[in-house]
Amino acid sequence: MPDFDFAQPTSLNEALELFAADGEVRALVGGTDIVDQLKTGRRNADMVVDLKRIPELQRLEIEADGLHIGAARSLTDIAEFPVVLSDYKGLADSSVLVGSWQIQNRAGIGGNVCNAAPSGDTIPALLSHETSAIVASSSGRREIALSDFFAGPGQTVLQKDEILVELVLPPIPDDSASSYLRFIPRNEMDIAVVGAGSFLHLGSDGAVQKARIALASVAPTPVRARAAEGVLEGNVLSDELIETAAVAAVEAATPISDVRGSAEYRRELVKVLTRRTLGISRDRIVG
């Protein structure tokens, strides 16, 4: 591995000062992406800043405005958190799909988000829950809708001096549920050929009050399938409506052909996985 300096701040202010310095400063939480990227030269660093010991970045709690998850909190902790298991099931689904158990024990959710892989498994689940990213720099804080957070493969809108502090998932209403699933040709330990997450909220008349669908590995960034959401909202949920939405979801996909699958295959997978995630979310509401 190339040489770099290392710091382990215990407060956010201390960390923000480090990120305000010149040179390439890289955040490390679990290290499961960045250490490999440093070893192979896919990213470089003059300084690596371990953010795990900043209490604010380890938050995992429910507040009036929703679920707060610190950027350094491990995927294992998130997947085992009771409120995630009951109310944010799509996030629980996706957290146990990232790498292996060893990876989930170390990897922080902020790392999965900021690594900004088009295939990042937690991202569609977070997008379907309309997650906000709370970002800080030495000059202040800002809130960014996660749907505006990604700029391209491996790229986010974070400025050089900014840190992702936490993610906030709004409270969920009754009669709502989420799910995430992906297709890989193996059982475990692979990168999504396509991933699809959904959130559904049904009214008492059976009509869809809100639908959110997000896709992985079909565009330069994870994307919302807004046309499919529009197909669902205001209409009574049925198998036929889900099928129509699944077809509409393909409009959001601009996939490439690569070793994991052709563009045509991925478009077909978008249809199949959107249908399935909507079915799972519906079943979870009905119970």
Partner: peptide
């Protein structure tokens, strides 16, 4: 050496980790 094979697995504070990806 990149977190796929698990030959380097150790426990850190009781949880498994790939020691090749830990500084």
């Amino acid at each position: 050496s990149n977190g796929n094979c698990g030959a380097c697995t150790v426990m850190v504070n009781g949880r498994t980790a790939n020691s090749c990806l830990v500084l």
